[in-house]
């Protein structure tokens, strides 16, 4: 549950993917999206993109297993989506399988897989991006992209505070369950109301934390002047090579996907 629910949170590692400039990684994630869009009607052509996202997950030290975890987590939804797409193209191509109302053709299968990869490839790319990019660098990148510094700071603070918040939610839940709270019993209304003793203490904690955090931010002079970034990313030759290779790979895949004769 924990590894799954926090799959996209920054993980401290020393990997080639972590070392890349965040701009290079953002460009890469967008190229993954573009190539997936271009190959969405042919799952076969989208396979190299999927393989590249698995490679990125491995290179970022997260392990390609995370992809499996995310796919399994969304399996019901993904199955529904791919079946609908396969059904939508059931009148085109060669019939491969007829199972009751489900008619699976070669075209339908290609489209279903293409759409599956269109959904999953960007998800995996962004998971690799977020898990390998320090929130500090995300803040820098957001500011560079034109986000107001206070919004960038808010986003980064929230990301940094998330692990301790999740820990607090689990502690409160365990404490309430130990006192006899049964989250999985009763009607829908009762089950929803059972969350009151979990949410109220979390908000009470928030209310005291707000003042603490405000004073800490004030005494660290947040928003005092235009912020210096000691660890300002520097675009290096490695980033150029990575971006050029990405352009070539995903450009090639996109051309392959869009070319009707290929």
């Amino acid at each position: 549950m924990e590894a799954l629910s926090l799959g996209g949170l920054y993980v401290e590692r020393k990997t080639p993917f972590h070392e890349l400039d965040p701009r290079a990684k953002i460009a890469w994630a967008l190229l993954v999206l573009a190539a997936s869009v271009a190959t969405q009607f042919d799952g076969l052509k989208a396979l190299p993109v999927f393989a590249s996202t698995l490679a990125a997950l491995s290179l970022s030290g997260l392990g390609a297993g995370l992809a499996l975890l995310l796919i399994v987590n969304a399996s019901a939804f993904l199955a529904a989506v791919t079946l609908v797409w396969a059904g939508a193209y059931s009148s085109q191509g060669v019939l491969l399988l007829a199972l009751g109302p489900l008619r699976l053709t070669d075209v339908g299968l290609k489209v279903a897989f293409g759409k599956f990869f269109l959904i999953m490839n960007p998800v995996l790319a962004f998971a690799a991006l977020f898990a390998s990019t320090r929130p500090y660098h995300l803040m820098w990148a957001l500011e560079k992209l034109g986000a107001p510094p206070k919004v960038a700071l808010t986003f980064t603070l929230a990301l940094n505070l998330l692990p301790s918040t999740v820990k607090a939610v689990r502690e409160v839940t365990e404490a309430q369950v130990a006192r006899g709270l049964a989250l999985d019993r009763g009607s829908v209304v009762q089950r929803l109301r059972n969350y009151v003793p979990i949410i109220v203490p979390m908000i009470a904690k928030l209310l005291s934390d707000v003042w603490d955090l405000s004073m800490v931010l004030a005494s660290r002079y947040a928003g005092y002047a235009r912020r210096t970034y000691v660890f300002e990313p520097r675009w290096s030759a490695r980033d150029t090579v990575f971006t050029v290779l990405s352009l070539l790979l995903y450009g090639g895949v996109a051309a392959w996907g869009l070319a009707p004769w290929w």
Partner: peptide
Amino acid sequence: VTRSVYEELAMAPENL
């Protein structure tokens, strides 16, 4: 409030 000790130490002078 940050994810590394160095970032934490640098935060205030960076903000200044």
